[in-house]
Computed example of a mutant assay.
Amino acid sequence: MNAVSLAVNGIDYGGWLDTSISAGIERQCRDFTVGITWKWPGADVPRRVTQGDKCQVRIGQDLVLTGYVFATPIRYDDASISLAIGGRSMTADVVDCAADNRPSQWRNTSILNIVKALAAPYGIAVIGEADAGLSLADHMVDPGETAFESIDRLLRMSRLLSTDDAYGRLVIAEPGSAGRASDRLELGYNILGGEAPLDFSDVFSEYVCKGQRSGTDSDFGPAASEVEARVTDDRVARRRTLVLNESGQMTTDIATKRVSWERENRISKALETRYEVQGWRQANGDLWRHNQIVRVVDPLIGFDRDMLISEIEYGLSEERGTITSMTVAPPEGFMPDPPEPERRAKKAKGKKGDAFEYLLPPNWEK
């Protein structure tokens, strides 16, 4: 049920003693490493896998990655041989390789179609789980940028997320689109360990977005060349101002939504917490998945709320067995249109439960 298999060129390889498979909602390509060690003289060296081979990784019957082999490290000494295979999702080519489209500019084209055009030269299919039908007046590839850097610039301005799926496709996603986890993460029940830096050094009291757009006969001068939006956050007691200089065709509406998203995203990142649980599956047999909503009950850190699994890693070692490591964060910071902080009530004195109600809605329901 939990055996990891690697299929390369129609041949399945198993029996791995060390495994790491990781994915994340803000990562464009998941990756894997599998390894095995045996003593001399041991078994024959397994049939060699070649860098660039297309592969699939499964946990039991569940497909978790479709991509390519990138590395085949080998190490040996007078007592043993260690062989490993590492690879990444097909979308790695979008991350690594240049945006070399001709033409390299789009006008009045939907976000989804621009992303498809940027991914097409590398044979990557694009799936839209979020509303990416909004048309942009203009998007141009910057010289030297990768396909992903151009996609990221496009999506960031539109407050959308992109990741990959088990089939190696690029997915324009929305928070929680993978559904809700059936199990809770609960201290004293299934949490083996947790780590929360609770670092608010990247949180500010005021966010400013500045940009410009091409002028027209009816839209010119400062209205086009000096686009600006500001939003404050009274949850930060002293003045701390961050200015975002954005490229692309900026409008006041886009700039306003951009700073609102930035404000909530930074609070969410400040509350990111990493948890470990035993095993890779929940009680109902489903794998833990990134982009799922999970209830976190952790009175030691102060959580009793729904969180988003933003990153996940399936690990296997001889010392610890199967371990799932996951990073969770409040989903509000990933939403295209986060709720306004002024609508949130202050936490009542003496009230038990979540320690961060003054920062975020106490119950976020998908």
Rank of each mutant, 00 (worst) to 15 (best):
D100Y: 08
M157I: 08
N291A: 06
I151W: 04
W261C: 11
A196C: 10
P336W: 02
V328K: 02
I309V: 15
A255F: 14
Q292T: 15
M1R: 14
P361A: 12
P121D: 07
D44P: 10
V115E: 01
R30T: 00
R48T: 13
A79D: 06
G86A: 14
Y314V: 03
Y189F: 12
T37M: 10
E313R: 14
I127L: 13
V328N: 04
G315W: 00
L112P: 00
V69Q: 02
S80N: 12
P330V: 06
K210W: 01
H290Y: 15
G176E: 04
G168L: 03
N108L: 01
Q212M: 09
P46I: 07
Y314D: 07
T273K: 05
T251N: 10
M157V: 11
T37L: 05
S225M: 10
R156E: 14
E264D: 10
R58S: 09
R263P: 05
T50V: 14
L154W: 03
F204G: 00
G353P: 10
A43S: 11
L198I: 09
D234H: 13
V64D: 01
M1P: 14
I81D: 02
R75Q: 12
V296K: 02
Q56C: 04
D93P: 03
D306P: 03
G35E: 08
R239K: 08
L192A: 08
W16Q: 05
N245D: 15
D138C: 12
V45D: 12
A178P: 00
L63M: 08
D31L: 00
P175I: 02
C97P: 01
R27Y: 06
A117W: 01
S80K: 12
S80P: 04
P361L: 12
